[in-house]
């Protein structure tokens, strides 16, 4: 059972992982904070309509996500919303956004579950918080599988 090497992951995700891997624990937190600041604003169409989005209840702070699909290209765009009082959660969301949004369905589905470990955050952040990121990834994959099966639950449009 060998681990999928980072080099076989999508390039935009590998970049994020390598950015974190190079840093000391304290600097990792700073980078996570930077990511949290860069989480893109929700598109107009989702503002004030979180009920159209899926709440990731495994996160310790409120986090909502939704996917939009381009079936011709076979790609998924991912949107997140999290309050500014939850910078860690926002940071995780921004990592996933930067690393996964816009990729092809099969690329996202192939992302390994141990993504949070690969970022090397487990010493700086409690493991239970990192679970939030794993939960986000799990929900993203579940959404894509449901979409592929033709019954995306809770998706707008």
């Amino acid at each position: 059972m060998s681990q999928t090497p980072n080099s076989t992951l999508p390039a935009q995700l590998t970049e994020v992982i390598e950015e974190f891997a190079e840093l000391e624990d304290r600097q990792k937190l700073e980078l996570l904070l930077e990511f949290s600041r860069e989480l893109p604003e929700l598109p107009e169409r989702y503002l004030n309509s979180y009920d159209q989005m899926e709440e990731v209840v495994e996160c310790q702070s409120p986090l909502f996500l939704t996917l939009e699909y381009d079936d011709a290209a076979g790609t998924a765009a991912i949107f997140f919303a999290a309050p500014p009082e939850a910078p860690t959660t926002r940071g995780f969301a921004a990592i996933l956004h930067e690393g996964l949004s816009g990729l092809r369905f099969e690329e996202i589905l192939a992302v390994p579950e141990d993504l949070s470990e690969r970022l090397g955050l487990s010493k700086a952040i409690t493991p239970l918080r990192l679970r939030g990121m794993t939960a986000m990834l799990g929900r993203i994959k579940r959404n894509i599988r449901a979409h592929q099966a033709g019954s995306a639950p809770g998706q707008p449009g």
Partner: peptide, 22 residues
């Protein structure tokens, strides 16, 4: 704080951070 990055987003002037985990 429960969120270990919250202090960095803004805190009371002069306050020091304590990270309960580390």
């Amino acid at each position: 704080n429960e969120d270990v990055l919250l202090y960095e987003t803004g805190h009371i002037p002069g306050a020091q951070k304590i990270d309960w985990h580390t």
